[in-house]
Design a protein around this nucleic acid. Structure first.
Length: 707
RNA sequence: GCGCGGUUAGCUCAGUUGGUAGAGCAACCCGUUUACACCGGGUAGGUCACAGGUUCGAGUCCUGUAUCGCGCACCA
């Protein structure tokens, strides 16, 4: 017996050594598996696309979880004979990374504003590439058996080029339009944001009622009211039936007398407030729509920095927060404030990164027409082409698809893929090269990062004509966090169908958040962030993987407790000592299966076979949390506690049949257990496997899954 | 406001098609007789949130209530 088993298992000494062996074997690559004869050429393929981690910082517990889950699926399928491909990637993460980098600049006393865009881009690129390397080595340390030879970065030349091709195709297909629309504007970051990049928070703010000619209007935003010259009410509102659409009235307003026009529109809620409102089309979606319907003027009141424009008269140049009380004061002095409701709560949108209040602004942007795309996606789900785990997420997915509004894909940041568009007066062109003729100006905006990430399964398989696209698209599973059910999953489905002709995956497995030991969300400000690398240093990667998977049902958040990880480290050592016992007691075994097995051996093996069938079923149904727990239980409380304990008698027996039968059974159960545990605890199982004497032995990672 | 999920042992959570409640950690007692003290043996601990219903039988299915969490939301 190898002396290594005389001292406890050391993860630190084992893991990097084992990973190196795996990586050098080439078996992470399905083509090499076929070439070297561990997988049949004719086998079905099994493909998982890794959600590319953002290359802007360290791996966090959430990454560890998804790497673990995807690695379990991948290893299981590879051992089961599939042509198995797990494609890794790295995400430039446009806005997210730019925000990270801006914080870094801030710390250095610098600012992105005023920097040459090309210099800024280059700095962020260097920063990202450095982090990308770091991220990749951390993914390796989790044991990920992904095919690094196929790794893609979201800013690889071909990805950039193909993303731009998609834009041009969609523009030519009429799926993308440029238009003035209400957008979410973040003053701090000086960019527009999509709906998923904002957070709606309920807040209580004073609700002011003002006298507006013969009417009373209500608002939480007095600072937008300077230019309000349309007063709107519902056409069926009897209280105001004496007023006619288009009628002009004279009234006294904030900065003097104005003429206002009556508008009748059904968008007005008669039940709300007084049933009368004035509109500010430049700074409100609903007002914008009313203005469009009636062909009304619109004027910007607040500039792109959040300061009032000259239309505000004496308040020009002030920011919103300072101006609001002063404006109310002035209105009060003029006797125009009728009442104030202090208990009013409304929903305020904030930037999901800096918490700045989002200002609705009107701006020319690129929009993707969603209705035809979401219809394709819903039809695909109706046809049962996409299965969700857990299945209640199908409803959530449908809800999003049924309610999505046109998608703003323009961002005013440098860190991203340039939009291939050109302007020349009223003329617009979508092309990578400058169009013929004079006067063309390049669009300086970049794409929303989800515009390219949404095409990820296509990009990594080499759409439209790559070999992998033919062989591995559509993929089998998309495993990602449930928070991405809106951000990412729908966009991949849409692009997959629109460009690739097929849904990009047939199963969506959604894992929950990894929370702290108390079940609270981890956050830097709370200081409760658990760094997975500290845990793996202390207890080993296999232990962390077990702690992340056992008891973790899909879609449900997980509380990560250190003592749980420690428990599975002990389990690793248990397996180690089981091996020691088995090896010590089978030294004199001839390595052959006896012709007859004793009654107890037969019973033990048939129990193991039941376990194999049971666990295999769980694996096929993505119930990894159950499979892992069953294996843990079997190995510790059946194999170690019962079978090994009972074998001590048989091993001492003079009856050769009883003795060799026990020896054979111990070896058989040990080897089978290692195979079954390998997807969950790849390092220790491979290490033990390497010390066993087995005929025609291959690496455990490519050894046949037990039947 | 709409939607989704949770409520099971002190804590964190499992419980796959309905068949007399499980794990890990924590607690208590005993034990170092050579695989393992990163251990072994044992004990204690739950009217499965509440109220109805379906059923021979409900933690599991249905209805309602409470409560916590999350998501969505263009009522000025």
């Amino acid at each position: 017996m190898n002396e290594i088993f005389l001292s406890p298992y050391s993860a630190t000494n084992t893991e990097s050594k084992i990973y190196k062996i795996w990586e050098e074997s080439g078996f992470f690559n399905p083509d090499i598996c076929v070439e070297k004869g561990v997988t049949n050429e004719s086998s079905e393929s099994f493909t998982v696309v890794m959600p590319p981690p953002n290359a802007n910082g360290d791996l966090h517990a959430g990454h560890s979880l998804f790497i673990t889950l995807e690695d379990i699926m991948t290893r299981y399928k590879r051992m089961s004979g599939f042509k198995t491909l797990w494609i890794p990637g790295a995400d430039h993460a446009g806005f997210e990374t730019q925000v990270v980098y801006e914080k870094k600049l801030e710390k250095e006393g610098r600012s992105r504003f005023g920097m040459d865009p090309n210099d800024l881009y280059k700095e962020i690129l260097d920063f990202t590439l450095l982090n990308k390397k770091n991220m990749e080595s951390q993914v390796r340390s989790m044991g990920a058996s992904c095919d690094w030879s196929r790794e893609k970065f979201t800013l690889d030349e071909d990805v950039v080029s193909k993303t731009q091709d998609t834009f041009i195709k969609m523009f030519n297909d009429g799926m993308i339009y440029r238009g003035k629309r209400t957008i979410n504007w973040c003053y701090k970051h000086q960019t527009s944001l999509s709906e998923v990049e904002t957070e709606s928070v309920e807040e209580s703010s004073p609700f002011y009622y003002f006298k507006y000619g013969p009417f009373e209007i209500g608002t939480v935003r007095p600072e937008t009211k300077f230019g309000d010259k349309y007063v709107v009410m519902h056409p069926n509102d009897k209280r105001y039936s004496e007023y006619k659409d288009g009628q002009k009235i004279q009234l006294e307003w904030i900065n003097g007398p104005i003429e206002a026009t009556i508008i009748k529109d059904e968008a007005v809620d008669m039940e709300f407030g007084t049933g009368v409102m004035t509109i500010t089309p430049w700074h409100s979606q609903i007002d914008f729509e009313i203005a469009q319907r009636h062909n009304l003027d619109m004027e910007q009141i607040i500039d792109w920095r959040g300061k009032l424009l000259p239309i505000a008269g004496e308040f020009a140049g002030m920011n919103i927060k300072d101006a609001r009380p002063k404006i109310v004061e002035k209105l009060k002095a003029k006797g125009l404030v009728t009442r104030v409701d202090d208990k009013y709560t409304n929903v305020v949108k904030r930037c999901y990164k800096c918490n700045t209040i989002i200002e609705p602004q009107t701006k020319d942007q690129w929009f993707v027409k969603m209705a035809p795309l979401t219809k394709m996606a819903l039809d695909s789900v109706d046809r049962g082409e996409i299965k969700f785990i857990p299945d209640n997420y199908e409803k959530i997915f449908r809800y999003w698809m049924e309610n999505s509004i046109d998608w703003n894909i323009s961002r005013q940041i440098v860190w991203g893929i340039p939009i291939p568009a050109w302007f020349n007066g009223d003329k617009i062109a979508a092309s990578k090269e400058k169009p013929e003729g004079d006067g063309w100006v390049k669009d300086i905006d970049t794409f929303d990062t989800w515009f390219s990430s949404g095409q990820w399964p296509l990009m990594v398989t080499g759409f439209p004509d790559g070999e992998d696209f033919k062989k591995f698209y559509p993929t089998q599973v998309m495993e990602t966090g449930h928070d991405l059910i809106f951000k990412w999953v729908p966009r991949m489905v849409i692009f997959g169908l629109y460009l690739g002709g097929k849904a990009p995956f047939n199963t969506v497995y959604l894992h929950g958040l990894v929370n702290d030991a108390q079940g609270k969300k981890m956050s830097k400000s709370k200081g409760n962030v658990i760094n997975p690398l500290t845990l793996t240093d202390k207890y080993g990667t296999d232990a962390l993987r077990m702690a992340l998977v056992i008891g973790n049902t899909p879609g449900t958040d997980l509380a990560l407790r250190e003592d749980k990880v420690k428990g599975y480290k002990n389990f690793g050592n248990k397996i180690w000592n089981i091996t020691r016992f088995v090896l010590e007691n089978t030294k004199d075994w001839d390595g052959k299966k006896p012709d007859n097995l004793s009654e107890s051996s037969t019973k033990n093996i048939s129990e193991l076979n039941e376990l194999v069938a049971d666990v295999t079923k769980d694996m096929d149904n993505y119930r990894f949390y159950l499979a892992a727990e069953k294996l843990y239980h079997y190995v510790w409380h059946t194999f170690a506690d019962k079978i090994i304990e009972e074998s001590k008698e048989s091993l001492k027996s003079d009856d050769t049949l009883i003795k060799t039968s026990a020896q054979y059974t111990l070896r058989y159960i040990l080897e089978t257990s290692l195979k079954l545990l390998h997807p969950f605890m790849p390092f220790i199982t491979e290490e033990i496997w390497s010390h066993l004497e087995i005929e025609n032995k291959k690496l455990l990672m490519v050894t046949q899954w037990p039947k």
